[in-house]
């Protein structure tokens, strides 16, 4: 998160307004943290203590809510499903995007501009808006209620193609020419020259892709019917619904914590990489 500092970034003058503004923002940060703080406090509070709305941590923290959440919903299975969905989407995307990115970056052929425009259409026709017809297609392909059915609409990625094309174009052409002289085929050239040199772009794309599909809800909701194929988001929604009836808010907090933990942890560990990836997703 910490961006490189310019020499002037620190306050040069002692002006009142910016200080007040900073105080205000610090106050807002407290407000921002409240839902998370409540989640932690409620999740670790002994079950049935009745003090659901208190923001004071319990003096005797308990894992009872977690044990209950763990027993009520198959979070490990949901976790694996989410993992498979994200990994599957990413794996295919990396292939399709690097191939297409290479084509648009380095090959010259008639109709290239048109095809590229055709790709970019996907940026506008967000798959989630097309969920009704896409669901029909998925059912016709026999992929209804399967994990590949969740992945399929995301396998081609205009954004990934665009990102890879931009990165590939920054690779010095001479390297490829040298490889050509050595008789390397297109596959060898992509694999041995382009991909190793565009690792940062690949990482950025991977982080953005995994984050967005990990958090996705509506499309899997449409495709998945069987509980053993639910990703975490669906599992949490259904878990929340049944726990809400029980007035078990600590349980909901614990479930939410369990579901949010993997990405939150990854973010806290690899903060800078995440931030740079998100930035890269928006630029170029």
């Amino acid at each position: 998160m910490s961006a490189p500092t310019s020499p002037l970034a620190g306050p040069v003058t002692r002006e009142v307004t910016p200080r007040l503004a900073r105080l205000l923002v610090a106050g807002l940060a407290l407000v921002w943290a409240v839902p998370f703080w409540w989640m932690l406090v409620a999740a670790f509070r002994p079950a049935g203590s009745g003090a659901d709305a208190s923001l004071l941590p319990s003096l005797a923290p308990s894992l009872a809510n977690f044990a209950e959440a763990w027993a009520s919903a198959d979070f490990p299975l949901y976790f694996v499903n989410s993992l498979v969905i994200c990994a599957g989407i990413l794996a295919v995307q990396l292939v399709t995007a690097s191939l297409a990115g290479y084509v648009f970056a380095r090959l010259e052929f008639p109709g290239r501009g048109f095809l590229f425009g055709l790709f970019l259409v996907q940026l506008m026709l967000v798959p989630v808006v097309l969920l009704v017809p896409n669901l029909k297609t998925i059912a016709a392909l026999g992929l209804y209620d399967t994990l590949p059915g969740v992945m399929a609409p995301y396998c081609a990625t205009a954004f990934g193609t665009f990102l890879m094309r931009q990165s590939f174009r920054e690779v010095p052409r001479e390297l490829e020419d040298a490889a050509l002289i050595d008789g390397a085929g297109w596959w060898a050239r992509i694999r041995l020259i382009y991909l190793p040199l565009t690792k940062p772009a690949l990482v950025a794309f991977s982080i953005v892709s995994v984050t967005s599909h990990w958090n996705e809800f509506l499309w899997p909701l449409m495709v998945i019917n069987s509980p053993d194929r639910r990703p975490l988001t669906l599992g949490l929604a259904s878990f929340t619904l049944s726990a809400e009836g029980m007035q078990a808010w600590g349980l909901i907090a614990a479930g939410t914590f369990l579901v949010s933990l993997p990405l939150l942890a990854a973010f806290l560990i690899f903060q800078r990489r995440f931030v740079n990836s998100f930035l890269a997703s928006g630029i170029k």
Binding site: P35, F36, D52, N215, I252, T256, S260, L263, F267, V275
Partner: peptide, 20 residues
């Protein structure tokens, strides 16, 4: 980081918290 954390949790998870 505090301001960025909500970005990292699924929208349904945020909704589950705001339910209460």
């Amino acid at each position: 980081a505090v301001f960025f954390l909500p970005v990292m949790i699924p929208l349904v998870a945020a909704a589950a918290l705001f339910l209460f």
